[in-house]
Design a protein around this nucleic acid. Sequence first.
DNA 1: CACACTAATGACACCGGGTGTCAGATGGAA
DNA 2: TTCCATCTGACACCCGGTGTCATTAGTGTG
Lengths: 200, 200
Amino acid sequence: MRHRSGAEVFGRPRSTTHGGIEARALDLFEERGFEGTTVDDIAQAAGISRRTLFRYFASKNDIPWGSFRDGLDELERRLEAAPTDVPLWQALHEAILDFNGLPEGSEAQHRRRMRLLLRTPALQAHSALMYAEWRGVVARFVARRSGIEADDVRAVVVGHAALAVSLAAYDAWLAHDDTDLGDLLDDALTALRRHLGADA
Amino acid sequence: MRHRSGAEVFGRPRSTTHGGIEARALDLFEERGFEGTTVDDIAQAAGISRRTLFRYFASKNDIPWGSFRDGLDELERRLEAAPTDVPLWQALHEAILDFNGLPEGSEAQHRRRMRLLLRTPALQAHSALMYAEWRGVVARFVARRSGIEADDVRAVVVGHAALAVSLAAYDAWLAHDDTDLGDLLDDALTALRRHLGADA
DNA sequence: CACACTAATGACACCGGGTGTCAGATGGAA
DNA sequence: TTCCATCTGACACCCGGTGTCATTAGTGTG
C-alpha cells in the first residue's frame, strides 16, 4: 500500500506517517477499546483529517495490523534461504520461530498488540485475510521444495497446519501470562506430531 | 438466534422465514455478487423491510452462512458418540468426513455456496468467527478424551489442525472441479501426517 | 361482536466506516 | 516568479447496522 520509490522531492510534503497514526490509534484502542474508538477520534488525535487517514490505511481494521505485511516478506526470504538438507517441516518451524521472535524487552508490548489483534472480534475476522497471505507464502515454499503445484492439497494443508501451530501457540500464550511463546510453539508442534504420529 | 419454543399462537404471525430470505439473497449474490447486492435489495426481493431483515439475520455476512451453526451442534454430538477404542485423530477425521458429507445430487449447489463463502473477502473474514466456534468444539472433545484443559496448547492445536485439514481440502476442491471432497480430506490428512511424520 | 393481549412488522432517525470529487496548500524545479 | 507534482481537507454521498415507536395481525375471552 505504500508508494515510496525514491525520495519524494516533488509536491506537498507528507504531514504524517503510518507509524505516527498507528501509535495514536493504539493508544486510543487501549484506552477506549477498538469498537469504542471512531475513525474521527483517531484522525483528530493524529492531527489529520478523516479523509487523509484513509489515504494512509485502507481501513480501520488495517491500522493495528500495521507492519504485518512487511514481516511476510521477511518470512518468505527466510524460507528461501533455508538449507535444503534439513527436513522441510523443521525448516518451516525454525522460520516460524524466527518470524515470531521478539527483541528482548518488547514482550509486554507485543502481548498488548497481539491481545488486541486476536481478541477483538472485528480484528479476528479481518485477520483471515492476512492469514491467507501468510499461508500462501508457506504453501509456495512447500510446493517449490516438493516439486508440486502451490494449489495442491498437499502444499495447501501444510500452509494451514503451520498457521494452526502458530495460532494455537498464540492462543495459549495470551491465556497464560507466565509462558514463553517460543516454548509454546515447540509444544504445539510436538503435540501435533504426536497427535498425528504414525503410531496407528 | 431462533427463539421458537412452542408453536407461536400469539401475536402477529411471521411474514417470512430464514430460509426464504436466504434463498432470495443467494440468488442475488450469484447475480450481482455479494458486494454488489445491498441489504435493501435483499429486503425488497424478500418482500420485507430492511429492519425486519436484521431481525432475522444479525448481519449481511450471516445470511450465506445460514445453517452452519446448526451443523456445529451435530458435529459435537457426533464426537461425543464416537467409540473410545479408535484413535482420537481417526474419530475426529471420521466425524469431519460425516460433517462435510453431502447428500447425493446436491454437490453442485454446495459448490456454489462454498465458493461464495470461501472466495468472497468479506465472508472469508467473517468466517473466522465461525471457525473459532468449530475449533472450540474439537478442542473440547480432545481435552475431554485426553484429560487436559480445553485451553491447553495441545488441545487447541488439534482443533486448529483439524480445521486446517478441512479448509485445505475445500481450497483444493474449489480449485479443481473434477475432485471429490471426501478424497481430498483423506489426502490432506495423509499429507499432513506424512509431512509431520515421526521420521526425524 | 368488541375487547384485551401478544408478537412481528415497518417507518424513521441516527451512527460509523468508507469513497469520489475537487479546490486549495506546499515546496522544489525551471 | 511561475510551473508543477503531490499531499491535504472539506463536502457530499453510499451502505451496513441499531434504537425507538406506532401499527398490524393474529389469538383467546367476555
